[in-house]
Amino acid sequence: MASGIGYRGTNRCFPFWEDFQQCYFSSKQESRSDCVGARDDYLECLHHFKEIARVRTIQAVERENFAKAKNNGTEHKIISLASGGGTSS
């Protein structure tokens, strides 16, 4: 990342990059292990690994609850996160 400023202004992850860069260059450890948290925050901002994993876990639980409700004869609606908040059954 060169400057963090592009055609449409500052990149949304640039503050995380600055935090990581500041930690990295001010670290007194050779391994820079004290900057792992800052690096993880920056990578999460870029790729959303943790967010995607959490959404998949929630969706799996919702599908499981729907299957249980269907087997019990009760009504349970799954809220779709992708379609703008609508429900599907």
Rank of each mutant, 00 (worst) to 15 (best):
C35Y: 03
F49Y: 13
T10W: 06
C13G: 07
D34I: 05
G73K: 03
G4N: 10
F66A: 08
V61E: 10
C13P: 03
N71L: 09
L43F: 09
D40L: 15
R32M: 06
E62S: 11
Q21S: 13
R32Y: 08
L46Q: 14
I5K: 12
H47F: 14
A60T: 10
G37K: 11
P15Y: 06
E62T: 07
C45E: 03
R32A: 11
L43S: 06
T57R: 15
C23R: 00
E44V: 09
R39C: 11
E18N: 12
S3Q: 10
E62M: 10
D41L: 11
G37M: 01
N71W: 00
I52K: 14
F49W: 12
E75V: 07
K50A: 12
F20A: 06
Q22K: 09
E30T: 10
E30H: 07
N72F: 00
A67K: 05
Q21C: 01
K50N: 14
S31T: 13
F66S: 10
Y24L: 10
L46H: 06
E18I: 13
F49G: 09
N65C: 05
S26Q: 14
R56P: 00
F20S: 02
E51L: 11
R54N: 05
P15N: 09
S3H: 12
R32N: 14
K50T: 15
I58K: 08
S27I: 08
R63Y: 06
A53F: 01
K70I: 02
F49S: 15
G6M: 02
F66Q: 12
I5L: 07
H47R: 10
S27R: 04
L46C: 06
A60V: 00
F14S: 06
D34C: 05
F14D: 07
E64V: 00
A60P: 01
G9H: 11
C23K: 02
D41W: 02
W17N: 12
C13H: 04
N71M: 08
H47S: 11
R8V: 06
D40Q: 14
E51H: 06
R56H: 04
N65P: 01
S3G: 15
I58L: 12
A67T: 05
R54W: 00
C35T: 04
K28I: 05
K68V: 00
D19R: 13
F14L: 07
A69W: 02
G6K: 03
C35M: 09
S3D: 12
E64G: 00
R12S: 13
A67L: 11
H47N: 11
D40S: 15
D19A: 13
A67V: 07
C35N: 09
S27P: 03
A38E: 14
Y42E: 02
A60N: 08
Q21W: 03
V61I: 14
C35P: 02
G9A: 02
A38V: 00
F49I: 09
G4E: 04
I52N: 13
D34T: 12
K68Y: 00
A38R: 06
A69F: 01
Q29C: 05
K68D: 01
K28L: 10
Y7G: 02
